[in-house]
Amino acid sequence: MPAIATQTAQVPTDDPRVVHALAWRAKLSLDPQELDTLARPGMPYAVLQKIAHNPAASAETLERLIQLDERSLTYPVTRRGDLSPAVIDRIARRLTDRNAIYHASSAPNAAPDTLRYLASHPSAPAGTRETVARRLGDDTLPAA
């Protein structure tokens, strides 16, 4: 299957039929290497979103997705139940976008230290602090 991903790297992604085919490939692929190849700059959002939801995608691929589109892909990536708290922590510590920080604060597998970090981030919106306080049952979070 990696040969297919190599071929798609050379295909222009401005044709809607190509985008549709790549999105289906990203959705149905069981090959982590193929998904990693598809997760590249210039790939349409529809394809990147399918990779984010695909259980075969590796943690490294998911982290790259966040680098490619932090604002839009943080939510689907951090909702995955198969991500370890360590991966979520690595993702959270690279975030700079307000919306991404807010979405990461509700990640089901986020560790308490990660949640506290997100709540105290200078770019965190007020809702992040409230979400984290509610999740931790803690009203003593440091001021942002």
Rank of each mutant, 00 (worst) to 15 (best):
T114G: 02
E63A: 02
I88Y: 00
D113H: 13
Q10Y: 09
R79W: 07
L68H: 06
L65I: 10
P125N: 14
A124H: 01
N99L: 14
S123R: 09
V18C: 07
Y75N: 12
L28H: 09
D69G: 12
L35T: 00
T8W: 15
D15C: 08
L35R: 06
L118D: 02
D36V: 00
S58G: 12
A26D: 09
D31M: 06
P41Y: 06
A100P: 08
I101V: 14
A111I: 01
A39C: 03
Y75V: 02
A110K: 03
A100M: 12
S72Y: 11
S123K: 10
D82M: 04
Y102K: 14
R25Q: 15
Q33K: 13
A110V: 02
A124E: 05
A57S: 13
V18A: 15
R98H: 13
D69I: 05
S120F: 00
E63Y: 01
I88F: 00
P122M: 09
P85W: 04
A133V: 03
L68E: 11
L48G: 05
G127Q: 15
R98G: 11
Y45L: 15
I101F: 10
D113C: 07
L28M: 13
V132H: 08
M43C: 09
S105H: 04
E130V: 10
G42N: 09
H20A: 15
L22T: 01
S72F: 10
A133Q: 08
L38Q: 00
N99H: 14
K50Y: 06
A119G: 05
R129P: 00
R64E: 10
P76H: 11
T78W: 00
D31N: 15
L73Q: 07
D82A: 06
I101G: 05
V19T: 08
L28I: 03
P55K: 07
A46Q: 15
G81D: 10
R25H: 11
S58F: 04
A110C: 10
N99M: 14
S29Q: 08
S120C: 08
P44S: 10
Q7R: 14
Y102T: 05
A92G: 03
P32G: 03
D97P: 05
L30V: 07
R116S: 04
V47M: 10
P16N: 08
A92C: 05
E130Q: 15
R98I: 03
A100F: 09
A46C: 08
H121N: 13
R90F: 03
I66W: 00
S123P: 00
V18F: 06
